[in-house]
Design a protein around this nucleic acid. Sequence first.
RNA 1: GCCGAAUUAGUUCAAUGGUAGAACAAAGCCCUCGUAACGCUUAGAUGUAAGUUCGAUUCUUAUAUUCGGCACCA
Length: 582
Amino acid sequence: MINIKEDEHLNRLNHSCAHLLAQAVKHLYPDAKFWVGPVIEDGFYYDIDLGDKVITEEDIPLIEKEMKKIAKDGKRIIRKEISKSEALEMFKDDPYKLDLIDRMDEENTVISCYTQGDFTDLCRGPHVESVKELKHFKLTKFSGAYWKGDANNKMLQRIYGVCFDTEEDLNNYLQELEDAKARDHRKIGKDLEIFMSHDLVGKGMPLWLPNGAILRKELENYIYKKEQKLGYKHVYTPCVGTVDLYKTSGHWDHYKENMFPKMQVDDEEFVLRPMNCPHHMLVYGNTIHSYRDLPIRIGEFATDFRYEASGAVKGLERVRCMCQNDAHLFVRPDQIGEEFKKVVELILDMYKDFNIKNYSFRLSLRDKNDKEKYFDDDEMWDEAENKLRSVLNDLGLKYYEGVGEAAFYGPKLDVQIKPAVGPEVTLSTCQLDFLLPRRFDLSYIDSDGSKKIPVVIHRAIYGTFDRFTAFLLEETKGNLPLWLSPVQINIIPVNNEYHLEYCQNLMSELENYRVELDASEEKLSYKMRESSVRKIPVTVIIGQKEVDNNTISYRLLGSSDTITVTKAEFIKYIEDRIESKN
RNA sequence: GCCGAAUUAGUUCAAUGGUAGAACAAAGCCCUCGUAACGCUUAGAUGUAAGUUCGAUUCUUAUAUUCGGCACCA
């Protein structure tokens, strides 16, 4: 899908369209005040203060109509450069523009404004020549949006739109948006019976159905084997901990809002755990460790509970009950680089096996000014961030930096992906932590006999099974590779009376795979369709020909070719595909 | 949590201030069949709780959930 912000021409067109939107809104609501109207990846928006007025469904066509009218009028868009004092005078009745001007540096900034007919907006530009170029646009959505993105501020009205050169481009783009909805994991997850939810269980608490459970088990097996080979030790620990545990870790101070409230049991106070670090710290602390034993890698498929804001919950992608493929690596300072590298390699290895290509690395740093969120120890942060940055540079990894995206205890490397619908999310994560080992008073005995504090690397390769599954369903459009498919092979007898026995025998010969036999009293064509709708990768058809020749005919999902082979050839084919993860 | 919208059968959709309609799925019958939906029959629904009304699925309010954004985040 085209990135409008990155395309110079479309960027300009959409930026001008944002002004057109503002002008139309001003015509319809003369008291409207305007904040900013930037171009974004999928078009543009404008944040508008309409007083008590709230934009509704009915307003959108009216605004579009006014926009068309202004565009038809075809006024030129005229740029004018002004001084800061002129700007302050020109926008003296507009608190939002004054706020913008106020923050401009008089010396180094050219302040410009653009006028089209009766509408002038403070703007850096550039713009198209005339509003008459703005013919093929659509207002796509609208909502409230906090002023300056701060939930403590007033909520403005945001209107989104998109503009193209031709009607065809616009329609194609809108069609792409529609198509994206078809591969939304919430739809696929329902159609393929991967997961469900129920009001009586609660919001953000998905129930994994049998098909989903098979998929998840395969994911578990895959990463478990990888981790075993890399020397991870797996544990099971409880989903609850005492409040004191989280006071010790610091989560109580820094993360309490994201936790389910504490519960009183006899004279103890418990919380559902939002992460597993504290438990794993205690596992490490259970015995004395020599410098020779490090790194120690403790892994767990651990269920966590987070009190996510009600508006944030989304399918399997953002849930209140999740399972991480978590691990904590306890390392000596001199091992940080190497261990970190191994984690990144494991991530890349896994992405290759799952054929995942659309992701980017984000180095998530703290916001120095946010003393609320982040543990306050400048020296520790600088050390951790510098260390992490140098590891990433050594690895030659391409990444961008995200300030204010770190965990409260340390910086991290996040792998970001873009779902079918909505903003990008983190999948894999790898975090560097100098804090928790100190807070839990962890140590190892160094070569000189002195007690040293280990460094902890937190990492989750899939992130959570939940979100990873959501992503996988969207990437594959539900056409899961053979090794992950809940049902791998569907056997259909042409005639139940004559061919069923052969099918049943075949089934037991294929017992190592997930096989179904469709012995229902339906027509063959109907069963073929069913097999396809259920996205079963391999459909086997057994008729008289196959029975007579002791062969197998099969058809692959998405293909209309029928292939006839011997049983041995068929098993080899299936084996190869599972082995190669196709 | 905030701004908006939605909620009708297992699923996807329709309609109405006065008996809620269809398709697919289900069950029964028919068909015994060679690669994407045979036909017939039956059963099945207005999220929850109040209010207005002679009468509410429809109007109002609350609540829950879902959806689009904002904020937050694995």
